[in-house]
Design a binder for these strands. Structure first.
Lengths: 144, 144
DNA sequence: CACAGTTATCCACAATTCCCCACTTTATTT
DNA sequence: AAATAAAGTGGGGAATTGTGGATAACTGTG
């Protein structure tokens, strides 16, 4: 049911990206793509998007940080639409934000998808993997 | 009831691995394969996995540590699906992580399975067997 | 209204995955 | 011991998936 896995795909010259077939049905009811954190893009099913949007607009309007954050997340959001081959067109501003070149990665993070530039993703993974002892300890805390 | 034992199997050229028949029924209700520790793979029954996943996604999205951890754990997980012969297809990224060549080992570790490359497994066994007394002493401090 | 530029829809190929059949080996039964 | 069943392994072929490109529809502009 949730999104899981790591898929290496290509972005073509038109900015289209194939969404792994496994994920398509799950977001056939509609989804939103927007700026994520750590220079990736989020793809959220509509209901998840609603939840996130509610949280965003609940942030204190008085704080300039949260205003800025809300603007970025909301202004750059756009609805996801598939072509017949199961690809989506990633809006140019989002492509630029995520630094997407040809090689991209689509990962499932339970209730959302993330789209990364492949280089960024491998860098990010290395960085976090190198903290593997801490990870092991956290796992212990989670009961494994 | 629990998973026990050590089974030597082969990975075929398509990346398929036979799961010992004894274990199949136990995970017929669904299972998840994911990155383990020490370069092996974990196969967890769905309920075990569910518990873990809930803890992972409960971590705050705002913290970069927990984002990283969730990404690592979830992006490298995948639902296990059997073919008619009781084999599963191990996703390529996981094969790579565990360094699986042709010869693999499936071991039962009570409430989970682990999949190892045979060479890694024998190396690991040698290393830990020779150190088992010391390990035992350390464990004592943990209340075993 | 024609035109260029963009966006969408469609088609075609290659690669992978999935599903099924068959053989070999090991275990179980008669 | 023979016969039967079950488990592990390999491979062929159909269907699906990912990718690139071609054509058609739409957009706004002069």
């Amino acid at each position: 049911m949730p999104f899981l896995g790591e898929y290496f795909h290509n972005l073509d010259q038109k900015g289209r990206a194939a969404i792994p077939a496994k994920f398509r049905e799950k977001i056939s009811g509609g989804a939103i793509i927007t700026r994520g954190l750590d220079h990736c893009l989020f793809v959220l099913p509509k209901d998840e998007w609603e939840k996130l949007a509610q949280k965003i607009i609940a942030m204190p309007l008085a704080k300039s940080d949260s205003r800025a954050f809300a603007r970025l997340m909301l202004a750059q959001a756009s609805e996801v639409e598939f072509d017949n081959q199961g690809r989506i067109l990633i809006p140019e501003p989002l492509r630029r934000y995520a630094g997407l070149s040809k090689k991209i990665v689509v990962i499932g993070v339970y209730n959302r998808l993330e789209i990364w530039d492949e280089n960024e993703w491998t860098k990010y993974k290395k960085k976090t993997e190198s903290a593997s002892e801490e990870i092991a300890e956290k796992l212990e805390g989670l009961g494994i």
